[in-house]
């Protein structure tokens, strides 16, 4: 690897810019491929560019056989994000666990007494109303959204923005009964069944969780499942 390539990779990572490194495993030649740009000997090789850009989309690194050449495409995506509405008890273990699992976590809660540095050491806090906070943070296809306040006044505005986004996961705390009420409110607000169906509720995998930390495990497990199963399904198709 050329020093110049390595420095650019590190700059891209620091700037949270998605990039793939395409390596010819026989010659060692390397090309950096971006979503709209490329730099290196395969910079105008349509096959390499297409494979690399799909790999960025799928966040999957692997060896490709492209016209008889063994090309290793390694993706360097910015971290996944998790936006949590509600600086509540469950958000404390969830934000920490998600950070350990590699997520950039932001907790949104306008209630100053909940969203404090003491309760969420090292976690980014956003004190806007959840729709403004969510809009500003602009969830994309590498973002998971979880609402935890139990309070429609706070959860719903956040969910509305999330439902209009490409967030790969949307989950909302609350019993079946709570969720039925939520479905009713969103239906009358004009959302379709398919849109509302994106909300995982009751949130998390059913593993008998009781404590906040256990509930956090079930939520993070469900997010992990959705993240990887989506890509597996696309690969199988």
């Amino acid at each position: 690897m050329k020093q110049h390539t390595l420095s650019r990779l590190l700059e891209d990572q620091a700037a949270k810019r998605a990039v793939a490194l395409a390596t010819d495993m026989d010659s060692g030649d390397q090309t950096l491929v971006y979503l709209n740009d490329a730099d290196g000997p395969d910079g105008s090789n349509a096959q390499v560019l297409a494979a690399a850009r799909q790999a960025i989309q799928d966040d999957r690194s692997k060896v490709y056989d492209l016209s008889g050449r063994r090309i290793f495409i390694e993706t360097f995506n910015p971290p996944l994000r998790m936006l949590i509405v509600g600086a509540v008890h469950i958000a404390q273990p969830l934000s920490r666990m998600a950070a350990v699992a590699g997520y950039d976590v932001t907790v949104i809660d306008p209630r100053g007494s909940f969203a404090t540095e003491e309760r969420f050491p090292g976690i980014a806090l956003n004190s806007e109303w959840p729709d403004d906070g969510m809009r500003g943070l602009n969830p994309d296809r590498r973002t998971a959204v979880v609402t935890l306040t139990h309070d429609p006044k706070l959860d719903d505005p956040g969910l509305e923005i999330a439902l209009k986004s490409d967030a790969f996961y949307i989950g909302s705390l609350g019993s079946r009964k709570t969720h039925a009420g939520r479905v009713e409110r969103f239906t009358s607000a004009g959302f379709t069944d398919t849109e509302i169906g994106r909300i995982h509720a009751p949130v998390g995998l059913n593993i008998g969780s009781i404590s906040p930390a256990e509930i956090a495990v079930s939520i993070l497990a469900q997010i992990t499942e959705v993240l990887h199963r989506n890509i597996e399904a696309r690969e199988a198709a």
Partner: peptide
């Protein structure tokens, strides 16, 4: 946004 986040695998 990640500033101060716990060190992670990636």
């Amino acid at each position: 946004m990640a500033d101060g986040n716990v060190a992670t695998g990636p």
